[in-house]
Each structure stands twice: as C-alpha cells, then as structure tokens.
Simulated scan of single mutants.
Amino acid sequence: MTPPDDLVRAVEATLFAATAPMSAEQISAHLGGAAVGEALRRLAADYAGRGIELVERGKRWHFQTAPDLAHLLRREREDVRRLSRAATEVLAIVAYHEPVSRAEIESIRGVQTAKGTLDVLLEAGWVRVAGRREVPGRPVIYATTPEFLAHFGLASRRDLPGIDELRAAGLLDPVDDALAAAMEGAGAQDPPDAPVDEPGETRNTQQNALD
C-alpha cells in the first residue's frame, strides 16, 4: 500500500478532529485552499471495509463506525423514540417533495397537520425551514437536512427508495398505498379504513388554504 502523502494525512486529521461533518470546501478552506477531492476519495477507499469508514452524506464528510459493528459498541440498549404515524408521513412527504409548504403537505396527506408534528421533525434536526415561497401569503417551506441523510445512511436524496421498492419490502400497507399514490402525483384519496389522525389533526374535506 502506498504511504499516504502529507495532504491525505492532513485531511484525515482534520476530519478526526472535527466536531461535525465537513464539506470538501470547508476542509479545503481549513487547509489553506488545498484541492482535497482526490485525498478524500483515497481516504474513503483506504477505510472501506474497516471498523471505521469515511462516508459522504449530503456533500459532507465524516468518519463513522461500520454499520455491522455498531452493536459491539453499545453498552446498554437504548430506548428508541419512534416517530408517530403523522410525523413519519410528513417526513416522507418533505423528503420526496422538498421544498414543500405546510399547505402542500396537508394537500397530499388529506389531513390538517398539527404544529407539533413539524416541531418534532425540526427538533430532531431532520427537517429545516428552507425559506418562503414567492406566492401570495409567502408560506414557509420545509426541506430535509444533512443530518436526515446521515441518520438514514443516504449520500443524497437520489438514494431515497422508490415507492415500488417500499411496497416490495412490505413497508407500505393498504392505507399507505393511498399516500403513496398521492406522492406519485395520482392525487390524494382517503381510503375506506383511513388511519386515526394525530391529536390536533382533522381530516380535510376541502382544499387547504395557504399557510
């Protein structure tokens, strides 16, 4: 194996010392404007298959434990806080349609979305406010974050599974199929056995107004 050169070592040290994932531009600026693209690719190849991997998530680089070894580092089982059905639906809609407004989310779901549902996703760091849409009322629009990509092991939104993949994996039930159809642009329709809405949510019977 060819010994790493000084730039590769500098990039490696920078990422090890970083407190958060860094973009190539940030790494370059930290190293005086050096071209770090090739050094990052070499490091990623060098660490591939080892206990620690160098990965790119949302155009940001960081070291992480190899997924198949994570269980060895857990000293005690953590209580995972599961998202509610409403939050899961909203997160999926934001991921597949971003940037998207609350009114657009509600139009796809066919349900008025409680403010707390979006707050949960904002607090988790998976959804962010991406600005305002330039239409009357200028509604706030939402998008996913690099933390969302990192948590779900996605390099970019292009890696999101398609509806057919979700259905083949058994991750969509008959109720979810109606949401999937709406997300694919077929129009939202309430199924006969529609889920019980989250507290604070009511099912729409008319087109939602803008935020």
Score class of each variant (00 low, 15 high):
V140M: 13
A124M: 10
S107D: 10
V111Q: 11
L69V: 02
G33S: 11
R109P: 03
P99I: 00
R81V: 08
G125H: 08
G37V: 01
E104D: 06
V120Q: 12
A124K: 14
Q64S: 09
R50D: 04
H62L: 14
E106F: 07
S84G: 15
L83N: 05
E56N: 11
P139K: 09
A86K: 12
S101Y: 07
R102L: 15
E104I: 00
E78T: 08
G33K: 13
D46M: 15
E123A: 14
R60P: 03
A130N: 05
E56F: 00
W126A: 09
Y47W: 07
L121R: 11
R57F: 08
R81A: 11
E106L: 09
L69H: 04
V111C: 10
A87M: 10
V120R: 15
R109F: 00
E98A: 15
E38C: 03
V129N: 10
L121P: 05
G33T: 03
E106T: 06
R138Q: 12
A124F: 03
L43Q: 06
E53M: 09
I141M: 12
D46I: 13
A44P: 05
D119I: 14
A70G: 04
W126N: 05
V55W: 00
T145H: 05
E134F: 09
A44W: 01
R74K: 13
A114I: 03
G125K: 13
A103N: 06
S101D: 04
L73A: 14
T117R: 10
H30S: 15
G125L: 09
V90L: 14
H97C: 13
R50G: 15
L73I: 06
I108Q: 01
E134R: 15
S101F: 06
A130P: 01
G116C: 02
L121I: 08
R82T: 03
R74L: 13
E106Y: 08
L69P: 03
G131T: 07
E134W: 05
L43F: 06
R138T: 07
T113E: 06
H62K: 12
L69G: 05
R57G: 05
A95Q: 10
L122W: 02
R74D: 07
A35F: 00
E106C: 08
L72S: 01
L122A: 11
I52M: 14
K59D: 08
R42L: 10
E98M: 11
L91G: 02
Q112M: 12
L73M: 10
R74M: 12
R74C: 07
R82G: 01
A35C: 02
S107W: 02
H71M: 09
W126L: 11
L31E: 03
A70N: 05
A95L: 11
L43V: 07
I27R: 15
V94L: 11
G33E: 05
A44M: 13
E38R: 15
A45F: 04
I93E: 03
A95V: 08
L118M: 13
